[in-house]
Amino acid sequence: MNVQNNNLNLEHNNVQNILIVDDVADNLRLLSGILRKQGYEVRCARNGSSALNAVTAIIPNLILLDIQMPDLNGYEVCQKLKKKPKTRDIPIIFLSALDDVQNKVKGFEQGGVDYITKPFQVEEILIRVKNQLALQSAKAEIHQLNQILQRKIQNEKQRTNELEFINHKLQQEIIARQKVEQQLIHNSLHDSLTGLPNRSLLMKKLDIAIQKTNSNSNYLFALLFIDLDCFKKINDTLGHLIGDKLLVAVAKLLPEGLRNKDTVARLGGDEFVILLDDIESLQDTTIVVNRLLEKLKGTFQIDDFTVTIGASIGIAISSPNYQNSSQILQDADLAMYRAKENGKGHYEMFDRAMYIPNFKFLNSSRGDDRLESIMKSKQSQEMVKKEGKN
């Protein structure tokens, strides 16, 4: 079996061999450079046919396989490898810009062990490669130990207990490594201070909500952009430790009274966002917002300090005009700054009149810079739409 061959190779050479298959030269250079710095032996192939030849010459420990290629696509390459006994056990991680569920499911159905979406993060590539190689090494070790023990069992039945113990130990190691990988994935999608979903997870859920809006005219959701009033003053006077504890207290308060399908996220600093999913009407939103404003007007006991804050909230309601999560987040952000301009401690519902050029949030330089950035982004989006129509 191929697993056995890989294990024998590792006995003579501890360097793991990785084959990267991608028709884009820049991707090959980037990935090979990253992996070689980690001590891996890396080979590259520009198309499916070259990849099959490279595997025939030297069986790799792992293949990073692009899906969209000119001659044989990644799925076809995977099928050919899985049909041959010598190559069917090679772990294959698919790389693709295709992020829909159907393509991911197809990748796993073809025999892939993992699926990484482009553009990828270096840390994600390294941890997934490391875990797959570790799992393969563990499986190879189990296979080798089983062969040794099975020969001994023929003459010594008492060795059965030893075999069960070793197998159990190795299985525990595999489970432990899988738990580590799951924890790393969870950490990458949640805020380290508050434990709330972070920007990445929020944007993914927002994109799903926007897709529902475009496919179902009766579906409605609301996005609440919350910025704490006077937080900077508290942070500067009482210190960052008290400020962090205050953020944790706010993070525990915000989900109270919300539904399980709603999402509370922290963007960073004193900015929080709430996604109210599948609401019946705008009245549902204003009820929730008024309740949040009242809660945030209360006092917080942080260590020996009694802290009083407030919040300004911007609201953006779902619309077929939104094509991605960044657009509606910008509009909710802009509505929040209108709330601050009008005296803080209340909410504003976004409307397009807020894009009038002479509207400025003058209470802080931070507001001016943020607004200018939003305005430029919105102007760019409008230009793209016009060019598309032409």
Results as ranks from 00 to 15, higher is better:
residue 140 A to G: 08
residue 75 Y to W: 02
residue 250 V to H: 01
residue 224 L to D: 03
residue 228 L to Q: 12
residue 61 N to E: 02
residue 83 K to W: 14
residue 24 V to E: 09
residue 330 Q to F: 14
residue 75 Y to V: 01
residue 366 R to A: 15
residue 67 I to T: 04
residue 384 V to S: 08
residue 160 T to Q: 11
residue 64 L to R: 00
residue 377 S to P: 08
residue 62 L to K: 08
residue 333 D to M: 08
residue 291 R to M: 11
residue 1 M to K: 09
residue 129 V to Y: 09
residue 139 K to T: 14
residue 365 S to Y: 14
residue 210 I to A: 08
residue 215 S to C: 10
residue 167 N to Y: 06
residue 156 E to P: 08
residue 113 V to N: 05
residue 302 I to G: 05
residue 363 N to F: 13
residue 200 S to F: 15
residue 314 G to K: 00
residue 76 E to H: 07
residue 293 L to H: 07
residue 167 N to V: 09
residue 210 I to C: 07
residue 133 L to F: 00
residue 116 I to F: 04
residue 237 T to D: 11
residue 356 I to G: 02
residue 177 R to K: 13
residue 154 Q to W: 13
residue 271 E to D: 13
residue 65 L to V: 06
residue 42 V to G: 08
residue 118 K to T: 04
residue 217 S to Y: 14
residue 252 K to W: 00
residue 388 G to P: 07
residue 321 N to E: 13
residue 42 V to H: 07
residue 308 T to V: 09
residue 106 K to C: 00
residue 89 D to F: 12
residue 307 V to C: 11
residue 195 G to Q: 06
residue 96 S to L: 09
residue 43 R to C: 08
residue 162 E to F: 12
residue 61 N to T: 00
residue 123 E to Q: 05
residue 187 N to T: 03
residue 16 Q to N: 08
residue 255 P to A: 01
residue 115 Y to T: 04
residue 31 L to W: 12
residue 223 L to N: 04
residue 65 L to P: 06
residue 280 E to V: 09
residue 106 K to Q: 02
residue 280 E to G: 04
residue 382 E to K: 03
residue 340 K to H: 08
residue 281 S to P: 07
residue 261 K to F: 12
residue 178 Q to H: 07
residue 215 S to P: 05
residue 59 I to T: 12
residue 61 N to G: 02
residue 243 G to A: 02
residue 250 V to T: 01
residue 196 L to S: 01
residue 125 I to N: 05
residue 61 N to M: 00
residue 380 S to G: 09
residue 41 E to G: 09
residue 160 T to L: 15
residue 151 R to V: 15
residue 211 Q to T: 03
residue 162 E to D: 10
residue 303 D to M: 02
residue 272 F to I: 05
residue 147 Q to F: 15
residue 8 L to E: 15
residue 169 K to M: 15
residue 218 N to L: 15
residue 19 L to A: 06
residue 381 Q to H: 11
residue 176 A to G: 08
residue 128 R to K: 04
residue 387 E to Y: 04
residue 249 A to E: 14
residue 111 G to S: 01
residue 270 D to T: 00
residue 369 D to R: 11
residue 327 Q to E: 08
residue 98 L to G: 04
residue 288 V to K: 03
residue 240 H to Q: 04
residue 110 Q to V: 12
residue 142 I to S: 12
